[in-house]
């Protein structure tokens, strides 16, 4: 069976005023039905643009190359009508900024019901009933009252739950979840993750999970892709990655997770240095200037993404031992 999503050699670049900014460089990634694939990496490394590319929602100044197949069909250059029919119904996105993704002048109930009327051809009454049930499912309190409220009348975390609920309304084949839990406390977060898990089982929904919260990733993802400066630098089964990171960036990132117990350190750990300027071409490995294991070769030749044991792939000349 073919994967529900198959991205091959995807590149996205922005034409800026003075230079071209390469946001995504030759990224390949597959999601099987019912699978959850996580994408993690530094702020600004291209995760949101990756999701937007799949949705066909890249900004006007973006140039895109490569291939994106959804359910076996190429959608990278698909006509607008075809994408409109997919979006919201079979393909849904939980946007990173719910505030700007929700329509400000429509009540929550109206915008949710509209999705079902449009894509599922439900009658308004039924659509409203389903929307209400979904709000309850994603644990929005006082759901009936919330249906009649406008987005700005909700708290940040409630808007986020509405966004999640809205994306799941049509039982999509693929959900792109871009930082879905940033405004949720741990207990509600756990409940929302449980809902996403149920969707995978009930409807074989595939999930692309973008998150800076590595505990959320560990709790939901089967496979993790680590991005750095627009490239995939490591991909592995979640258990392998969290057990033994092989790329120096992955390992450095994990060592920066702040702890909830033990002594409080005077300062939090960080990676030294800055990511490369996306407008400039790097000769060798993009991580070399910040890496603790750099050799002469690293600054000369870019390391290709290559398989190690199991299903682990790494783009590093000196991968860490298991």
């Amino acid at each position: 069976m073919h994967p529900v999503l198959s991205i091959e050699n995807l590149s996205v670049a922005f034409r800026g005023a003075d230079a071209e900014i390469a946001a995504i460089r030759r990224v390949s990634l597959d999601v099987a039905a019912g699978e959850c694939v996580a994408v993690v990496g530094e702020s600004g490394c291209g995760k949101t643009q990756l999701c937007l590319a799949v949705m066909g929602l890249l900004p006007a100044n973006a140039a895109i190359g490569g291939s994106i197949r959804f359910d076996g069909r190429e959608i990278l250059a698909a006509p607008r009508a075809q994408m409109n029919a997919l979006r919201g119904a079979r393909l849904a996105m939980i946007f990173q900024d719910p505030q700007s993704a929700l329509t400000p002048h429509l009540t929550i109930g109206t915008q949710m019901a509209e999705v079902l009327v449009l894509h599922r051809k439900l009658r308004w009454r039924e659509a409203e009933a389903d929307a209400l049930a979904m709000l309850r499912r994603v644990r929005v309190p006082d759901a009936a009252r919330r249906m009649r409220q406008y987005p700005h009348e909700l708290s940040g975390g409630m808007r986020q739950r509405v966004m999640i609920g809205m994306s799941l309304l049509c039982e999509p084949d693929l959900v792109l979840a871009d930082e879905p839990t940033t405004a949720l406390d741990v207990t509600i977060q756990a409940q929302v993750i449980a809902v996403l898990r149920e969707m995978r089982q009930e409807f074989r929904t595939g999930i692309v999970l973008v998150s800076h919260d590595l505990s959320v990733v560990a709790g939901l993802a089967d496979r993790v892709y680590v991005m750095y400066a627009g490239c995939i630098v490591e991909s592995a089964a979640a258990a392998d990655l969290f057990g033994h990171a092989r790329h120096p960036y992955t390992s450095a990132l994990m060592s920066c997770v702040p702890r909830i117990s033990g002594p409080v350190p005077p300062r939090l750990a960080t990676l030294p240095g800055q990511p490369p300027n996306p407008a400039e071409r790097v000769a060798g490995c993009a991580f070399a200037p910040r890496c603790a294991f750099t050799s002469e070769r690293c600054t000369r030749a870019p390391p290709p993404l290559r398989p190690l044991e199991g299903s682990t792939m790494v783009a590093c000349h000196h991968p860490l031992p298991r």
Binding site: E42, S43, G156, L253, C256, R267, L268, T270
Partner: peptide
Amino acid sequence: EAVSSLDVSIQGQIV
């Protein structure tokens, strides 16, 4: 929620 959208390294840097 000023550091909620940052990776752990930049979050550490900001804190």
